[in-house]
């Protein structure tokens, strides 16, 4: 039977939340920055195998530099979280551990995947090195522009949610 799951996508301003979703859902990308306000909802069916699929209802939240400011009401009933940062802007990941902690307090239980986006703008190897040196924990490094690793994020989430069920 097909299940539906609420997935929220969070992070600082302009890190590429909307772009990641658009890449995943429509397989498109735009350089234009269109500020998100409030929430935008999209849907995508993730096929896991021949007889198993899960429907993601994606909640694309507006960016915020203070995770405390996220409206709790938007997070109710969440099944999974994608936390996005921008690998080109340290301000979006220098407090990553604290940011995740705050999100964790607001959403207890569901898996949180941490994603560094915009990898097309920098040297990936150097970045990985840098992340390691500064012990910045992440699950995926993506580019919404090229599409690199984008699908992997959501597939991983679907698999995690599947194990829970």
């Amino acid at each position: 039977m097909q299940r539906s799951r609420k997935i929220v996508v969070l992070g600082h301003f302009g890190v590429g939340k909307t772009s990641l979703i658009r890449r995943f859902v429509e397989d498109t990308f735009s350089d234009n920055y269109k500020v998100s306000i409030g929430v935008h909802i999209t849907k995508k069916v993730v096929v896991l195998n021949a007889d198993d699929a899960v429907t993601f209802i994606l909640w694309d939240l507006e960016g915020t530099d203070e995770m405390e400011q996220i409206r709790d009401a938007y997070l109710l009933g969440t099944h999974g979280v994608v936390f996005v940062f921008d690998v080109t802007r340290p301000s979006t990941f220098q407090n990553l551990i604290r940011d995740i902690e705050i999100v964790r307090q607001k959403i207890q239980g569901p898996p949180i995947l941490v994603v560094g986006n915009k990898t097309d703008l920098i040297d990936l190897e150097k970045l990985e090195q840098q992340m390691l040196e500064n012990t910045i924990p992440y699950d995926f490094l993506t580019s919404a522009k090229t599409g690199n690793e984008v699908e992997a994020v959501f597939l991983k989430l679907a698999t995690l949610l599947n194990e829970d069920a």
């Binding site: 539906s4 609420k6 409030g38 929430v39 909802i41 999209t42 849907k43 429907t55 209802i57 909640w59 409206r71 009401a73 938007y74 109710l76």
Partner: peptide, 13 residues
């Protein structure tokens, strides 16, 4: 399914 999500987001807001 999408309308349900949207209605909920609006309602919540």
């Amino acid at each position: 399914e999408m309308i349900s999500g949207m209605l909920t987001a609006i309602k919540t807001f």
